[in-house]
Design a protein around this nucleic acid. Structure first.
Lengths: 334, 334
DNA sequence: GACTTACATGAAACCGGTTCCAAGGCCCCC
DNA sequence: GGGGGCCTTGGAACCGGTTTCATGTAAGTC
């Protein structure tokens, strides 16, 4: 407001054309005579012209802004995904604007509405609970990409992994190492990821003809502290177990600490396997064997995908590697 | 663009007043007759009127958007601060828009310019390298709050801690525990925080009449991996040390792992103290003694401060607790 | 060479607000 | 009772672009 900006009119005057022509050059919407075009471009360069984003939006153009709806800020995995998105948006010309849904349907809806109100050109949902019809309705046709959550009715817009298969793979790894008494620390009970990972755990056991025993399953909430509590519960129950599969790395850290307190060695006495492969999992003592879920890459992929969707270009969902990262927290049972 | 929005004109028609009057009610800028005011408010409620942000900005109002300039996304501490800011902005009516500077002066300037171009009402710098005069100039009078960095010429707008004092305190803690041969893993060499923390380390030693020995100081880069390397360097040098002060927790994790690999126990053989108190530091084996730097709170405080600054209300910089968190990675030397 | 067609261009309307300005109504005071 | 001042209000200009529409001109066709 202080500085007077160079407007499209200034360019028009300098280049001896009309506003309309300048606008056309700006948007490549209609052919313009080469000479005039050159004159306009030159004027824009000389005057260091920068189109006013808001006038543009108001007049019906693109806002060049993308909305990101996050959940419970502070969670390593989701924060990483969010940061991946922001990172992926660099150099695309789009700026990210963020709203927090806090794993609360009501707040999530408010977040979506706020962003839509701000005329974002697209929306990225990082996790979330909103059912897809409500979401779709709130979006008014703005393209949406969903990360880390699978929505049946818009698969082509979901960037997520097969939690069942991945959890099964992790459990199988323990079974292959000779473990039979495998405990599972589950995540938040109504969270889709938790449910799927539990399912994978059960399938692996069943497939290996091992009975699924409820006393080996403890409810956690994805926090490290809940991992501590869960392991203490397990100890209190007095059930024997030689390995623990935690539904995320955070809880695996908690499990590790609780074992340390209980004087049990890892992996000699108890093996641990986690899920997510957070950056610091490689620095657990001993380094944590886990399933890698490439958070930053997922975020980046989502941003690229959304940009393509807005441009109405086709986009291939990249094969995101979900692999078992074998480190040192699992031992072969003699 | 699809849905037709309720505009100020619709309200005017419904309430039988002019656009101007509606605008006045909206902004409380000029007294309006109580009856008309009520009619307008009622109409706004009935029609579910939401003012168009962009028209508002274009016409010279506030954008209700705040810019955040982050650095090297992926760093736990800075990401936490950023998330703290986003969190603190909830319910203020302001939406955050983010740009990444990547610890690169040029990109940082681009980030600031992009945000200013988008007419943010205020700016929060999370870390950064830009010298304050350049920053000030690029901001064109938009208020700025700086987090985690101390700028001499605008102290009242900086939310940061006294790194020298905090590092000194950490080192003293080791000295009090009887340690004499204390190694220091420094951060990125030209980073202000690193320099200050090194200074604090040196001061503590000097004050205790312990000679500062260069062979006990190793250069790191704040990453866990650099902590591993640094400790290996130390081992290679063959100098004796009973404690390590790492300039951040990440590097402390690296140190811990390297000691594990070298077969040294913590804290029996080597004590470790970190800096930052990242969430997972409490879950290191053994739990890490460290200096807490409340990242989320700093971010939240910054957002409140900026909102106050925009409203031209006074704001007290909160006393952010920088305290030594004593856990189990330091032992008293016999 | 006359007529049609296509195309580039400028004028003007429009997006949805804010704000300046002038006018009308009311109260107050001499 | 008339004049002056204040307060409220509507009208209109404006913010800086996009887009529709009509026009003038050049090219194309027979």
């Amino acid at each position: 407001m202080n500085r007077k900006n160079v407007t499209i009119q200034d360019i028009a005057n300098t280049a001896n054309v009309s506003k309309s022509t300048v606008s056309r050059v700006l948007n490549d919407s209609t052919p313009v005579d080469a000479k005039k075009r050159a004159a306009v471009l030159k004027a824009m360069k000389n005057l260091d012209f920068k189109p006013n984003v808001f006038a543009r939006i108001l007049a019906g153009g693109r806002s060049m802004t993308l909305g990101i709806v996050t959940q419970n800020i502070g969670s390593p995995f989701y924060d990483s995904v969010t940061m991946g998105v922001i990172n992926g948006l660099a150099d695309t010309g789009y700026s990210p604007i963020i709203a927090d849904g806090q794993w609360n349907q009501e707040r999530e809806l408010v977040a979506v509405r706020t962003l839509i109100e701000r005329q974002v050109d697209g929306l990225i949902m990082v996790g979330g609970n909103l059912d897809s019809s409500t979401l779709r309705e709130a979006c008014h046709g703005v393209p949406v990409v969903q990360i880390a959550r699978y929505l049946e009715d818009c698969k082509e817009r979901c960037i997520c992994i097969d939690n069942v298969a991945a959890a099964k793979r992790a459990t199988e790894f323990l079974i292959e190492a000779g473990h039979r008494n495998i405990a599972h620390i589950a995540g938040i009970s109504d969270h889709e990821d938790s449910i799927d990972r539990l399912k994978g755990y059960q399938q692996a056991l069943t497939d290996a003809n091992i009975v699924v025993r409820d006393e080996l399953i403890v409810q956690g909430d994805f926090s490290a502290q809940s991992g501590v509590l869960a392991l203490e519960t397990l100890l209190l129950r007095g059930v024997a177990f030689s390995a623990v599969f935690a539904a995320n790395d955070e809880m695996a850290f908690g499990v590790r600490l609780a074992l340390f307190r209980a004087g049990k060695r890892v992996p000699e006495d108890v093996s641990i396997i986690g899920f997510d492969d957070q950056p610091n999992s490689a620095y657990m003592i001993p380094p944590l064997t886990t399933v890698s879920q490439p958070a930053l890459e997922m975020g980046a992929a989502a941003s690229k995908m959304l940009v393509s969707a807005i441009a109405e270009k086709p986009f291939e969902i990249p094969m995101l590697p979900v692999e078992l990262v074998v480190r040192e927290s699992v031992t072969r049972l003699r």
